[in-house]
């Protein structure tokens, strides 16, 4: 449905997007993930025809955005980073304007009413956009993208600046829209893609560093045996013992707790092996009791940091399962700072 091949965008001497290629199949929801300044917005702007690429091509449904812009644009609904709202219009006027602008041929009253029901803005239909809250404005922005029922929806950071309740609402909405649209959604919030996307494309410094199905990434993460063990004992000695122990690939101190006289370690064993029993006996032999043991799945954040910096990430006890995104909303958002951590 969407084909991006060898796309390059240069701003003067800076290269914002450096030779990226990926495809999105019909009906897929693809998460376009990357730190701020990675080139996400630039790529999406090229895809929607707002910017032109320096080289390479972007095609929507086989139509090149540069060769035949108006045909390609008809197939796209776009929500930019900042929703393009005319604050001095009512929602009704604005959606009718969008309807005319896109030369929509569907039944006007019925189509606009349906959109309002889907994005839940029926109750503010006659209000001025400038009097709406951020969450409602975002919905109106999405409504605008849905006018004309385009096959492809492109959302640039759709949940930025919303409160946790609104974030969940918008995510559920996008998920629901994914049933009969092809969606690309950019974000720098990891649980978001885990929660809604079929596939993840990770971009950093203008280059694609990963392009995999969300489930595949989850599987490859599950296979790594990582545990967090809380061990009572002299931390430097324990650490060097762990690092020299056969069967342990990697160990580090996560945090020391002075009061309970124990230290938390992150320990990674050989793939497909269970090191818990071995660890128990080894520690018991040394006289360093294990006071806590927890299995840790590598979070998407770890993968992300690993991919963009080449260093293993600091692990948090975020479990990678299908509901991770929804749980994670209640935690502080995991934002990835630039490539320097």
């Amino acid at each position: 449905m969407i084909e991006i091949s060898n796309l390059v965008k240069k701003y003067g001497v800076n290269t914002a997007v450096d030779n990226i290629s990926f495809n999105v199949e019909k009906g897929e929801i693809v998460g376009f993930l990357g730190p701020n300044g990675a080139g996400k917005t630039t790529t999406l702007n090229i895809l929607t025809g707002y910017l032109s690429s320096s080289a390479g091509s972007a095609k929507i449904d086989g139509i090149d955005i540069l060769d035949n812009p108006s045909e390609a644009k008809k197939r796209i609904g776009f929500l930019p980073e900042q929703p393009p709202l005319y604050l001095d219009m009512t929602v009704k006027e604005y959606l009718n304007f969008a309807y005319n602008l896109k030369r929509c041929r569907l039944n006007r009253v019925k189509h606009i009413r349906e959109i309002c029901e889907v994005v839940k803005i029926t109750d503010v239909y006659n209000r001025m956009i400038k009097n709406l809250s951020k969450g409602y404005r975002q919905r109106v922005g999405i409504a605008q993208a849905l006018v004309g029922n385009p096959q492809v929806l492109i959302f640039d950071e759709p949940t930025v600046g919303l409160d946790p309740k609104q974030i969940i609402d918008i995510r559920n909405l996008i998920k629901a829209l994914g049933r009969d649209h092809t969606i690309i959604l950019s974000t720098h919030i990891l649980p978001e893609v885990q929660a809604i996307c079929d596939r993840i494309v990770i971009i950093n410094k203008g280059e694609i560093v990963a392009n995999e199905k969300t489930d595949d990434i989850a599987k490859s993460l599950m296979s790594s045996r990582r545990i967090m063990a809380r061990i009572s004992g002299p931390s430097t000695e324990v650490l060097s013992f762990l690092r020299n122990k056969e069967g342990i690939l990697y160990a580090e101190i996560l945090r020391e707790q002075k009061d309970s006289d124990s230290t938390a370690y992150l320990i990674e064993g050989q793939p497909n092996s269970d090191i818990r029993k071995m660890l128990f006996f080894a520690m018991s032999e040394q006289g360093w009791p294990i006071v806590g043991l927890e299995s840790v799945d590598m979070s998407l954040e770890d993968i992300f940091i690993k991919l963009v910096t080449g260093k293993p990430g600091k692990t948090r006890a975020v479990r990678l399962d299908t509901t991770a995104g929804e749980d994670a909303v209640n935690e502080p958002e995991i934002e990835i700072a630039g490539g320097d951590n």
Partner: peptide
């Protein structure tokens, strides 16, 4: 930024 809506319209 409303120009984005116009410039990405057909």
């Amino acid at each position: 930024k409303t120009e984005q809506m116009l410039l990405t319209s057909p």
